[in-house]
Design a protein around this nucleic acid. Structure first.
Length: 841
RNA sequence: GCCGGGGUGGUGAAAUCGGUAAACACAGGGGACUUAAAAUCCCCCGGGCGUAACGCCCUUGCGGGUUCGAGUCCCGCCCCCGGCACCA
């Protein structure tokens, strides 16, 4: 029967109404008082967006809504919740788009920010708009520059010429993290190698600490794993191999010489230092390989090989890191003509150069053990170099031929290794390292894959690096009182091939006098990496009222570290690692009293559509505005959270939104109907269901099991309405705060219509769970015979076993299956099931 | 290749500690109400056998195992998604 309701649910109307009220009353904004002193602060962070011209992506909305649900839930518990948002508006992404559409970023970005702000308000996030951040605002980047200088003064910044990843299309240097399998992460162009003087943050100094702390912080496992891999700690040794001068007689040197005794024989010998994780296999080193750029190459190459070596080096340099990776497994190399003495075997082994050895890792040189390293095996096979077995697996003898590299280090024992024969891997590794150490030929060594963080960008759209280059004084920091170094408006801002920043053409801007000697000097014309902006934005949010300091100490103590950070795992190794490093550095310098920025981090999953990834190319992206117009933000939010487990993502199917839409309509009708009912006590059955629902939702929201929490609420609403019964007020009251995190607008409206004053989010309105009221009067018990369900009986909770057994045996179908069999055992799972174990017939 | 995460109806998914597999929804089918739309309400909905109701068998990627009992635990495979990738 169709029912006349006083008002039909009109999402657009009530959403606009409540967004306006929140704004006017400052519902979502923290006061100075709250920022400075709050009993129960809760800082809910989400990853601030890059304000693209396309507007908010569903991925953004999914991320923000999931975080917002969490923040709103904590507020309903009575905590003071700070939930800010801002804009990551500097960077190549924005700049490239500006170039594409021919609009100056200084004009374009404010428009995008305005559009994002409108959309963010519209989705009903509990954002504190009084404490927002825009990285392109001089009031923000002044402090980004200040942080650079703080690190600079602490000796954590260095300028060095280094091979860098160069994107020929974006015409800029990329961080290693921005190179995705050899190509630029933004435009997919293969990256080249160039050498430019750059500014680096010494993150590698923090490698071990960044790794160790991962054991203690409460983060998604997937994220900590990704960081561990990225930091890439490996334990091994650096070993020295003496280069043999030509014509030297080595036969009498043997294999037990020391660095010193060798030098007595050959005073001017150079040493090649290699890094290896497998010192136990040193007896199998049959040749050496240097990276083509290795500084010793020139000195050791023999005249006969010089031309070949030179041409290989030129080729490798032109190719760079990336095309080097493109050639995949194909191994090439050139013999230098030089030989090293293997200090373990006493045998002279040839020295090669090959591009599979990278200058950036370890020492840029390796001892090649083709028997026990896949790459060395391939190289030796391709170039006809000897392969020797020095580790025998189970069932192998010392001379069992190798058809591929045997790389297992688990169960092998050393062979063909002189007095180390028979040792297991770990002992061999340790003892051989010691043996080299005693002889002055190396020592144990830990290496990390992590590189120092290159923060220089030869682009326009970023904060200028606050350094002045003076011929007399060198690199001089811009004095704090001169910050910010404003990014000048230059109309010709596109980069070119020269590798020089667009700012290097703005002579009037870069010509300054040296702050130290007053002489003619020149500003640094590179800008800093966007990841520096985003590396500290969460520290700034609560202090945005202060323009005289980056961080208000009192406020920072109250609100940081962040209580809950929810975001995408695509930032597992970029933003999340850099922000940890900056926090540690600022802690060490004395600006923070904690060294980890986030108490808790959870990675959410990805949204796909109809089983496929969304992309502009496929034309299957979801455009949020029309959906919100048609269904309302609340319905959209509930649907997104209902799609699947939040930490795993979900498949967005267009028709699916019907479910949450109908749910909110029914909720609306039910609550309004209940509001008009004469007061009466709740139905006991419904009340039981209610308390079970409260228990479930209260448990599941903090675990981010949003989909099942919503399902529980749907189930409860179905129970309230079962058979078309009329709902009692006490049956619906608690539903309003429970749906509020997901659908805040309708919750506010219903809360008001139930006669409450003020926002549902003010005061601790989360319903209390009462276990007494959740207790079942009777429950259904499954009765099995030999593990198969044969019947059901109704019992009182906690009924004694013999009573239950008697009842179960009387059940018709159970009795039939028991007939003529011998009862062997009875398994009684309290209040769940009963299993009769019987003999076969 | 290495590191994560997965594989359950037509679809998205659910299932504390090993204890009634498929909750909650979508789509589909049937019906009520309605000028119409929106909204609402009721019924059916994994496969097979059988039937008057009831009942029986099968089913969580594949193959084994442990157990009274396995989607869940163990061993061996296959496939999909995401990340890293010549890191010595």
């Amino acid at each position: 029967m169709a029912r006349e309701t006083a008002t039909a649910y009109s999402p657009t109307e009530i959403e606009e109404k409540w967004q306006k009220i929140w704004d006017e009353q400052g519902t979502n904004e923290l006061t100075q008082q709250e920022l400075r002193d709050t009993a129960d602060p809760f800082y809910q962070l989400m990853m601030y967006p890059y304000p693209s011209a396309e507007g908010l992506h569903v991925g953004n909305i999914y991320a923000f809504t999931g975080a917002d649900v969490h923040g709103r839930y904590h507020r309903l518990l009575g905590r003071t919740v700070f939930e800010p948002i801002g804009f990551d508006a500097f960077g190549i992404h924005s700049e490239n788009y500006a170039l594409k559409v021919g609009t100056h970023p200084m004009d374009l970005i404010p428009r995008n920010v305005a559009n994002f702000t409108r959309q963010l308000r519209r989705i009903g996030g509990m954002f504190d708009w009084k404490h927002t951040v825009d990285t392109t605002d001089p009031a923000y980047y002044r402090w980004t520059q200040w942080i650079f200088l703080q690190l600079f003064k602490a000796g954590l910044v260095e300028r060095k010429e280094a091979p860098v990843n160069w994107c020929p299309s974006c015409k800029t240097v990329l961080a290693n993290e921005q190179v995705i399998s050899g190509a630029c992460e933004r435009c997919d162009t293969p990256v080249e190698q160039r050498r430019i003087a750059q500014w680096f943050f010494k993150i590698t100094r923090y490698a071990q600490r960044l790794l160790d702390n991962l054991d203690h912080i409460d983060w998604s496992e997937t994220t900590t794993k990704a960081q561990r891999n990225w930091i890439g700690r490996s334990e091994g040794a650096e070993l020295e191999f003496p280069v043999l001068p030509r014509g030297s007689a080595v036969d009498e040197i043997g294999n037990d010489f020391s660095s010193e005794s060798f030098r007595q024989l050959v005073p001017d010998a150079s040493m090649i230092r290699v890094y290896t994780t497998r010192p136990d296999t040193v007896f199998g080193a049959t040749y050496m390989v240097l990276a083509p750029e290795h500084p010793l190459v020139d000195a050791i190459t023999t005249s006969g090989q010089r031309d070949e070596v030179e041409s290989y080096r030129t080729q490798a340099a032109a190719m760079d890191l990336v095309s080097r990776q493109k050639t995949e497994k194909e191994k090439t190399g050139v013999f230098t003509g030089a030989y090293c003495l293997n200090p373990a075997t006493g045998v002279a082994i040839p020295v090669w150069i090959a591009d599979y050895v990278l200058m950036e890792y370890g020492t840029g040189a390796i001892m090649a053990v083709p028997g026990h390293d896949e790459r060395d095996f391939e190289f030796a096979s391709a170039l006809g170099l000897p392969i020797v077995r020095v580790v025998a697996g189970p069932g192998d003898g010392p001379d069992t031929p190798l058809t591929e590299a045997y790389v297992s280090n688990q169960d092998g024992r050393l062979v063909n290794s002189d007095r180390f024969d028979g040792l297991p891997y770990a002992d061999g590794k340790q003892q051989i390292t010691e043996w080299f150490h005693e002889r002055g030929l190396g020592e144990a060594r830990i290496n990390y894959r992590l590189h120092d963080w290159c923060i220089s960008r030869q682009r326009y759209w970023g904060p200028p690096i606050p350094i002045i280059h003076c011929n007399a004084c060198g690199a001089v920091p811009v004095p704090d009182e001169d910050l910010p170094v404003l990014l000048p408006r230059v109309e010709h801002f596109e980069p070119d091939d020269s590798g020089i920043s667009p700012l290097a053409r703005a002579e009037a801007w870069y010509q300054v006098s040296c702050p130290e000697c007053g002489g003619q000097a020149r500003r640094e014309t590179d800008v800093s990496d966007t990841f520096l902006d985003s590396g500290w934005y969460f520290l700034r949010y609560p202090s945005t009222d202060r323009n005289d300091v980056a961080l208000d100490p009192e406020i920072t103590r109250t609100w940081l570290p962040v209580h809950s950070y929810i975001g995408g795992n695509e930032h597992a190794v970029l933003h999340l690692l850099y922000s940890r490093f900056l926090t540690m550095a600022l802690h060490d310098i004395g600006h923070l009293d904690f060294e980890e920025p986030y108490r808790k981090f959870r990675a959410h999953g990805l949204i796909i559509r109809e089983g496929a990834k969304m992309s502009k190319n496929k034309g299957n992206v979801i455009v949020p505005d029309p959906i919100i117009e048609r269904w309302g933000a609340d319905t959209f939010r509930v649907y997104l959270m209902f799609l699947g487990p939040y930490e795993e993502g979900g498949d967005y199917r267009d028709e699916g939104i019907q479910g949450p839409a109908g749910f909110l309509h029914r909720l609306w009708d039910t609550v309004l109907q209940a509001a008009e009912e004469e007061p009466r006590p709740p139905d006991p059955e419904v009340e039981r269901k209610l308390h079970k629902t409260i228990r479930q939702v209260t448990e599941q929201i903090p675990q981010l099991s949003y989909n099942t929490a919503i399902a529980a609420l749907m189930e409860y609403l179905n129970a309230v309405r079962a058979g078309g019964r009329s709902p009692a007020r006490d049956e619906v009251d608690a539903m309003v705060p429970m749906i509020a995190p997901f659908a805040p607008h309708i919750a506010e409206e219903l809360w008001a219509r139930l006669g409450h004053t003020g926002s549902v989010f003010d005061g601790a309105n989360w319903p209390a769970f009462d276990p007494e009221k959740a207790r079942d009067a009777s429950l259904e018990l499954a009765v099995q015979v030999n593990g198969k369900v044969r019947g059901r009986v109704f019992i009182e909770p906690g009924a004694p076993e013999d009573a239950v057994v008697a009842l179960a045996r009387d059940e018709e179908n159970v009795a039939r299956h028991l007939e003529g069999r011998t009862l062997r055992r009875v398994i009684d799972v309290q209040d769940r099931l009963l299993n009769f174990v019987v003999s076969p017939e």
